[in-house]
Amino acid sequence: MLLPWILPLIGWILAPLLPGVINRVKAGFAGRQGPPLLQIYYDLGKLLRKGAVYSRTTTWIFPAGPILTLAALLTASLLVPLGGQEAWLGFPGDLVLFCGLLALARLATLLAAMDTGSSFEGMGASREAWFGALAEPTLYFSLAAVGRYSGSQSLSQGLGLLSARGWYDVDPELALAFAALLVIFLVENCRIPVDDPNTHLELTMIHEVMVLDHGGPDLAFILYGSALRLWILGSLLVSLLLPSFGSNPWLNLGLGVGGQFLTAALVGVIESVMARLRLAVVPQLLVGALTLAVTAALLGMI
């Protein structure tokens, strides 16, 4: 049996590698060499050594936003299993806490963005709130479908059991829940086709526009938080899909971590081959995903 705290520790250390992998895959598609894999670590180190500049219009909410976001995400990372390992803090009903922590992280970012008084940040906050409101029921319903299917109320029990079943005789409701979760993964992490992390055109940005006024350690918290969010939601996807092989916990954990990097590579491929959706079409994608999740939950009731 592995030490229980090793799972979140691995996540905290390796999470900044995921954006690096995504960037390398995208660069490969574009025929470029791309930034080094460890670029995010360098960026974090650079930003943490800097001081922060605060506008006079901001209040205490502005510096509190990134801290609260990061704290919520760090707590959420204690709740997700990976590679057959149970989460450190798993308990019956923890999926409600998990969804709530993600919502809290979003709320903190929104409030900090609106606190700047910038009209562009307000626009980004408005979009984020609208898409978040559509994405959250999808997350609930798909996790509920998984819980219903596995007959357990905790994330690590539900996802952990599924890993052991073998994926070749998977039931359709799990496939639907996985599809809905994949959309949620892309929405929550502000990835193409919902949001383009590289864009710097204020009229179309969602997540990037909300963090324009942050600098120094605050920006470092935000960067690290978005990497951690990739890791957390990626853990859900990987735990849902990856079967466990044998009884060696180290092997399974290694496979889980490998699955995370495979997911990151998949995101890189999606970003390279797809275009961003128009903003008016994004809610349609989200409502479509919600329909899939609700269908999965309903199928579980038969």
Partner: peptide, 8 residues
């Protein structure tokens, strides 16, 4: 679109 999916 949304109304149709809701009805669905």
């Amino acid at each position: 679109y949304m109304g149709s999916l809701l009805a669905a």
